[in-house]
Design a protein around this nucleic acid. Structure first.
Length: 874
RNA sequence: GGGCGCAUAGCUCAGUUGGUUAGAGCGCAGCGUUCACAUCGCUGAGGUCGAAGGUUCGAGCCCUUCUGUGCCCACCA
């Protein structure tokens, strides 16, 4: 065994093991009929992404579970990969192009796509490299990309299957249009944000009369596309207007007054302008009433020729201009402040427009139904449970999914149009480009220009990564997966859709447990973001504190959103350091190592039995915690065991017993098992130490989780030790109160008339208590009165006296004891009161009552002893 | 407009079927270093568990209302 450096040099060690894990395929997953499989698919980060704290948290959680499962005997697959992130990636490359003063249209589709690929090949794996720095134990050989050739086959296959099933259709509908990205978005991709806007009240003159109808709108420029005004049929105020025609100002179009129950008489004026091409509600009204659909916008958000004098103005410029013009004409009644939710593009934050266009949609209701059932029946569980409701609510109100995007980066829609055939019969839906039209034989075919929504490929991730639709042993063995880890924002985009796709195409759910973790925020509770400049870079933390510190600190409070500042990572750094140094101590002293050493057969002293008992208790509870996604609790248990018990007590106790081989072997055994249970949380430091101890069996992550030996979990031993700890602590406390210097050793007398206590004291007298409490001598007596110049205390059935010679003020010492009596009496009074309550005795659980009675006796004893001390001193 | 969280020590948070004297880390105070670790050790101070009601022998935990705060969903123009 080589000696350890005096400091934990995480930089070197992180790099060493990071490289090793990556290159040696340690975490390669293979079909193994002798083991159960345990699969996690990574939420594929965008190729544009760089590692942020959210990723760090997400991947640490996955790594903890996968490493734990690997050590507990599962064949684990953690499938890594990246997502092509259509709009986001295209935006990045377009921006780059813009620096050269070019647009994608300038260079054309083919060249632009090439540019995207070369960008992806150059930068797309950045985040994968960063994930490796975290210690993520993925099977890196399997790394997939949502636009790999094989993956693309799956995407096409799914489109074609759904099309033939009648679940994919094409049609002209109102969708969310991002004028900056020039594409349609799904409903989920339009983020509604509360915005302080204005409600404009405008007069529409009645044709041939002098009167007006006043309508209210938040988007006055859309009036250019109005083709009706609607009122509620029940609304008496407008009854006289039935059948009349209005003159739409500015464009002088004649538009009818229609009646529709949708209109809420209580809102605004009770009269609604109807713009069927630019509002979802108006769209439906337009259909119901056979209105004209007039599109007034170019795809870039400028007013088109239908806008007359406003042609070529940006929509927001036009808004102002329209209002000014109306005001000039005396048609503007008033402008109210009005707060409402406005949709924004989730990729570029531009205000989206409801826009009429021809798009592809997936009919979702039939897919949703079995996915709802799977959760209802508990085959899929959410952690924490409250997300179940969120999922259900969305699924039960699911709307059709707009899947076509007017961008160039993505899976091209596998549809060709015959230029010869009539419009409703010209569609050829097929995986590969057809040579001729199957209907007319024409070679004049054109592929659909659009690509598919990125999520239309991501929703296949759990099986497309295993090369579906090809059948394989891998697919059969590793699907369905076990757990999925993600943030709540992704439930609709991805989790729900994966469940639907899994059931539809694999006939089985893709995973059985979904763990929703919190959002990482800064110390003020703000979401970390580049633009706010409040982001803490995980790589910087890895560099300054180490990957283990990053992981451990992120997990320590992971129940909900976590607020972090840089100092927080000291928690993990300090713990890693503690592990390192405790190991150093043990490895320096454990020289007589017996490979056959067996804790259950060795003859152990009290302290050793105690730490063994504590260890197995901890192993058991940590395993339970991980199985139940209670990672922060697992870390607390580990911290408590390793630091507060193993280091602070056991290693201190055995400090003068290193010449005893049993002690050496015990300490080493405890260390080894500790390294194992800490490993999922802090893989680097534990791996490094393990390799020092066992150079021959290098990979700690491939070792077995410690087997709990129930027989060695002993409550009596733990109680005995607890008494000694209490005794030592109490003596230390008394010393501190009297300002006794640590170097000064005291004579001590223990007094107890209980033989059991006395025997337990004897066992530990010479070594433990004496050294840890800083005593010169210990005398055990059946009886001994309190003395002047001695400080006293009572622990359980034991009175102790510390000889302080002249350094003690007896009046102050009496006051100290009296205040203890007071405190104990207060507790006893409370207990007495409860125990004299009839209702408590008869209704409380018997063990609770018994426990209280026992405590009452103990308190009485203690008070008696304290009083005796006072009496002695009088 | 609906729904879901959160509120416990100066700070960040635990507290799993209601049951001893509500815990941890950081911070703070005192003491301590030729000892594996000052990224450390020992000792300590610090909380009427957001408010008010209620259920119960017993409430930080269950119920109701309120206040503050955060998030999600939603086609009132």
């Amino acid at each position: 065994m080589t000696e350890l450096e005096s400091r934990f040099n995480f930089k070197e060690i992180d790099e060493k093991w990071g490289k090793y894990w990556e290159s040696d395929g340690v975490f390669r997953a293979k079909v193994n009929p002798d083991k159960k499989s345990f699969t996690i698919v990574i939420p594929p980060p965008n190729v544009t992404g760089i590692l942020h704290m959210g990723h760090a948290l997400n991947n640490t959680l996955q790594d903890i579970l996968i490493r734990y499962k690997r050590m507990t005997g599962f064949e684990t697959l953690w499938m890594p990969g990246t997502d092509h992130a259509g709009i986001a990636t295209q935006n990045v490359v377009e921006k780059q192009l813009a620096k050269e003063g070019k647009t994608r249209q300038d260079i054309g589709r083919e060249q632009f796509t090439e540019l995207l690929w070369s960008w992806k090949n150059k930068y797309g794996d950045t985040i994968i490299h960063q994930l490796k720095k975290l210690g993520s134990s993925c099977d890196w050989d399997r790394t997939r990309f949502t636009m790999d050739d094989e993956y693309s086959l799956a995407v096409k296959e799914v489109f074609i299957r759904l099309y033939h099933k009648g679940l994919i259709y094409r049609g002209e509908y109102i969708i969310n249009w991002c004028p900056r990205c020039h594409t349609a978005l799904s409903d989920e991709e339009a983020e509604h944000k509360d915005t302080a806007g204005k409600l404009y009240h405008i007069k529409y003159p009645i044709k041939g009369e002098t009167g007006f109808v006043v309508v209210a709108t938040t988007r006055p420029e859309t009036m250019l596309g109005d083709t009706a005004v609607a009122v509620n049929p029940e609304d008496q105020r407008y009854a006289s207007l039935r059948g009349k025609i209005l003159m739409l100002p500015l464009v002088n179009r004649e538009i009818p007054i229609i009646e529709d129950a949708f209109v809420d008489p209580a809102f605004g004026t009770g009269a609604v302008k109807v713009t069927p091409a630019h509002d979802p509600n108006d769209f439906h009204m337009g259909r119901r009433h056979n209105l004209r659909f007039i599109n007034i916008l170019y795809p870039d958000g400028k007013i088109n020729r239908n806008g007359g004098q406003f042609h070529n103005m940006d929509r927001f410029v036009a808004r102002k201009a329209v209002v000014e013009e109306l005001d000039k004409l005396g048609l503007l009644v008033k402008i109210d402040e009005h707060s409402h939710a406005v949709g924004h593009c989730y990729r570029c934050n531009t205000v989206v427009e409801p826009y009429l266009s021809k798009q592809w949609f997936v009919k979702m209701a039939p897919l949703a139904q079995p996915a709802v059932k799977a959760v209802e029946e508990g085959r899929i569980k959410f952690y924490p449970d409250r997300w179940t409701k969120v999922y259900m609510n969305w699924m039960e109100n699911i709307r059709d999914w707009c899947i076509s995007r007017q961008i160039w980066w993505g899976h091209r829609i596998p549809v060709w149009y015959c230029q010869n055939c009539p419009e409703d019969k010209n569609m050829i839906v097929t995986s590969d480009a057809p040579a001729v039209c199957p209907h007319c034989g024409s070679k004049d075919l054109k592929q659909d220009e659009d690509v598919l929504d990125t999520w239309f490929s991501s929703w296949l991730w759990p099986f497309a990564t295993l090369n579906w639709p090809k059948a394989s042993k891998d697919l059969k063995y590793f699907y369905p997966g076990s757990a999925l880890f993600t943030a709540s924002e992704i439930i609709f985009f991805w989790v729900a859709r994966m469940i639907m796709a899994g059931i539809e195409f694999m006939g089985d759910i893709p995973f059985s447990e979904v763990y929703i973790h919190g959002t990482v925020r800064d110390a003020l509770g703000r979401k970390m973001s580049k633009s706010l400049g409040n982001a803490i870079d995980p790589l910087e933390i890895i560099n300054e504190y180490g990957a283990d510190a990053l992981r451990f600190s992120l997990i320590i409070n992971s129940g909900q959103d976590l607020y972090i500042s840089k100092e927080k990572f000291e928690i993990g750094r300090n713990f890693a350091n503690k592990i390192w140094n405790a190991s150093r101590l043990i490895l320096m002293n454990a020289k007589t190592i017996d490979p056959q050493f067996d804790l259950s057969k060795a003859d152990l002293d009290l302290a050793s039995q105690w730490i063994v008992s504590r260890m197995f208790t901890t192993v058991k509870r940590v395993g339970d915690c991980i199985d139940n996604y209670r990672y922060s609790e697992a870390e607390s248990l580990i911290n408590e065991f390793f630091w507060s018990q193993f280091c602070d007590w056991y290693l201190e106790i055995i400090k003068d017993q290193w010449d005893n081989p049993v002690i050496q072997n015990t300490a080493l055994k405890i260390l080894e098992n500790s390294l194992k249970i800490i490993h999922p949380f802090m893989p680097f430091v534990t791996q490094e130490l393990w390799a020092h101890i066992h150079p021959e069996q290098k990979d700690l992550g491939l070792q077995n989780w410690p087997k709990v030996q129930e027989r060695l979990i002993q409550t009596e031993i733990e109680n005995k030790m607890a008494l000694i700890i209490e005794l030592v602590t109490s003596i230390r406390n008394t010393r501190a109160e009297w300002n006794v210097k640590p170097a000064q050793k005291l004579d001590c007398v223990f007094v107890s008339d209980k033989p059991t206590i006395k025997s337990s004291l004897k066992e530990t007298e010479n070594a433990v208590v004496k050294r840890l409490a800083g005593l010169k001598s210990i005398e055990i007596r059946d009886d001994f009165p309190a003395q002047k110049n001695m400080a006293s205390g009572v622990i359980a059935d034991i009175k102790f006296y510390l000889s302080l010679e002249g350094a003690i003020d007896m009046e102050a010492e009496k006051r100290r004891i009296l205040s203890q009596i007071e405190e104990q009496t207060r507790l006893m009074d409370g207990l007495n009161k409860r125990l004299s309550n009839e209702a408590f005795i008869s209704k409380a659980k018997p063990e609770v009552v018994a426990n209280d009675r026992q405590r009452l006796v103990e308190l009485g004893e203690k008070i008696k002893k304290l009083k005796q001390i006072i009496a002695d001193l009088e």
